[in-house]
Computed example of a mutant assay.
Amino acid sequence: MRRLTNLAIAVVTVTALCSGAWLVRSGGETHAPPQPSAAQARTQPTHPESIRPESASPALPPSPPLRIRIPAIGVNAPLVGLGLTPTGSLDVPPAEREDLAGWYEAGTAPGETGTAIVAGHVDNADGPSVFYRLGALEKGGAIEVERLDGSTALFTVDAVEVYDTKDFPDEKVYGAAKRAELRVITCGGRYSRSTGYQGNVVVFAHLTGSRIG
């Protein structure tokens, strides 16, 4: 598998996730997904290279992920591999599959050293999708990623933040890490009926354990 740095996708955030078609049909802001509060932002160093690798569980060998579970917000979703579009942005899962999330398969696999990227829709034309409640996740929450090798990578949430698209911090989100880290991304922030969501919700997490099965 060809390895690419995650910054290869930083030129365009996952804007294809963000049309907000359901909000247009259902009354806009009255059905907007939850957004993270300021209390869920990082209080530790923000640059990935400044975080000590010894502050986490030892990384796992590379293995493709099969499923992501986030118990606190009711997520239990299969994962599909995502590539890049011709314009260089991260591709997205099929919009009609509200139960499906994706991972950047040319980058880091969840559980191995580096920054793994998982993305999914917040909604589609018919209603909420897999990461509709991602903005309600809190620091200290658990994320589990089931992997092809039979292991499950266990992550702890460090922060949940929301950014306007124009201010999206590429290096902070996609930059290299010395330990096994995970980013989970969907749409969020301000909403416009003409352009959809104006930003992204990003969960920052790091590996704190693993189990077989």
Rank of each mutant, 00 (worst) to 15 (best):
M1K: 15
R2H: 10
L4F: 05
N6R: 08
L7T: 09
A8R: 13
A8Q: 12
A10V: 02
V12Q: 09
T13V: 02
V14E: 13
A16R: 14
L17M: 07
L17Q: 04
C18K: 03
S19E: 09
G20I: 00
V24F: 01
V24A: 01
G27W: 05
G28M: 03
E29D: 09
T30I: 11
P34T: 10
P34I: 04
P34M: 04
Q35T: 15
P36H: 02
S37Q: 12
A38I: 12
Q40L: 01
A41T: 14
A41C: 10
T43L: 11
T43V: 15
Q44D: 13
Q44S: 14
P45W: 11
T46C: 09
T46E: 12
H47S: 12
H47F: 05
E49V: 08
I51F: 02
R52D: 13
S55Q: 11
S55A: 15
A56L: 09
S57T: 11
S57R: 10
S57D: 14
A59W: 08
P61Y: 05
P65N: 06
I68P: 08
N76D: 15
N76G: 10
A77C: 11
A77V: 06
P78M: 00
P78A: 00
P78K: 01
L79T: 01
T85Q: 07
T85K: 05
P86Y: 09
V92D: 00
V92N: 01
V92I: 03
P93D: 00
P93T: 06
P93M: 00
P93C: 00
A95C: 02
D99R: 06
A101G: 07
Y104G: 03
E105H: 09
E105F: 06
G107K: 01
A109C: 11
E112Q: 12
T115G: 02
A116C: 06
I117V: 10
I117Q: 00
H121M: 05
H121Y: 04
D123M: 03
D123Y: 01
A125F: 13
D126K: 14
D126T: 15
V130Q: 06
F131S: 09
F131Q: 07
L134A: 10
G135Q: 04
L137I: 01
G140R: 07
G140Q: 05
E144A: 08
V145C: 05
E146L: 06
R147Y: 06
R147L: 13
G150F: 01
S151R: 11
S151Q: 09
L154F: 05
L154Q: 15
F155K: 01
V157D: 04
A159K: 04
V160C: 10
V160I: 09
V160L: 07
V160T: 10
E161G: 04
V162N: 05
K166F: 08
K166P: 00
K166R: 15
D167E: 14
P169Q: 10
P169G: 03
P169E: 04
D170R: 10
D170P: 02
V173P: 00
V173K: 04
Y174K: 03
G175H: 09
G175I: 08
A176P: 14
A177P: 00
A177R: 08
A180W: 02
E181T: 14
R183K: 15
R183M: 09
I185V: 15
I185M: 12
I185R: 05
C187L: 04
C187T: 08
G189P: 12
S192E: 07
Y197M: 14
N200H: 13
V203L: 14
V203M: 14
A205H: 07
L207M: 04
T208Y: 00
T208C: 07
T208S: 14
R211E: 12
R211D: 06
I212P: 05
